[in-house]
């Protein structure tokens, strides 16, 4: 089980995330829009919690992040995508409570199931799951994410 870390949610990060998805919905950036007021304030796109990667001290897919020590090794069993032969196979979210700018989420990840499958083109496929809870400063669980990563024995051919 990875060490939990804090993910402060800020308005600029939400705006940039929405923008990267081509999303101009004011509910993700304009606090004065009627739609935002109706939503109880700025909310976050459905996949926004992915950007907690910026705050994950052990996040391995940011090789140029400035660090005091060496970069963490990529864990092949960590779910999600990976370098080289790793790919992100599935992603699932359950939404329990809205996330707003100003929230500080505690991110807690635990390993899930692991299984193997024979691939059609890439040899044996090794699947692994990780499950992440995003809990806000009031102790309210906001989002549960389940990520499935797959490692192939050789590069996937197109």
């Amino acid at each position: 089980m990875a060490e939990p870390f804090e993910f402060p949610v800020d308005r600029t990060a939400v705006m940039l995330f929405a923008r990267s998805l081509g999303d101009i919905n004011p509910v993700f950036w304009d606090p004065n829009d009627p739609a935002t007021k109706a939503a109880g304030g700025i909310v976050t796109p459905p996949t926004f919690v992915q950007s907690s990667a910026h705050w994950d001290p052990n996040y391995a897919l940011d090789l140029t992040r400035p660090r005091k020590g060496p970069a963490p090794a990529h864990r092949g069993d960590a779910g999600g995508g990976g370098l080289g032969r790793g790919l992100h196979a599935e992603q699932h979210y359950e939404y329990h409570h809205p996330i707003h700018p100003g929230d500080t989420l505690t991110v807690t990840t635990r390993p899930g199931e692991r299984w193997e499958k024979q691939g059609k083109r890439g040899g044996k496929l090794l699947f692994s799951e990780s499950i992440t809870d995003y809990t806000n400063q009031d102790g309210v669980l906001c989002v549960t994410a389940r990520s499935v990563g797959v490692q192939t024995e050789k590069a996937v051919e197109q």
Binding site: A39, T47, Y93
Partner: peptide
């Protein structure tokens, strides 16, 4: 997800998986 929130609203999703 943008198609979903444009269609169903930004706060309506309970589950989303792919």
């Amino acid at each position: 997800g943008r198609m979903l929130t444009d269609w169903l609203g930004a706060t309506s999703l309970k589950k989303y998986g792919v």
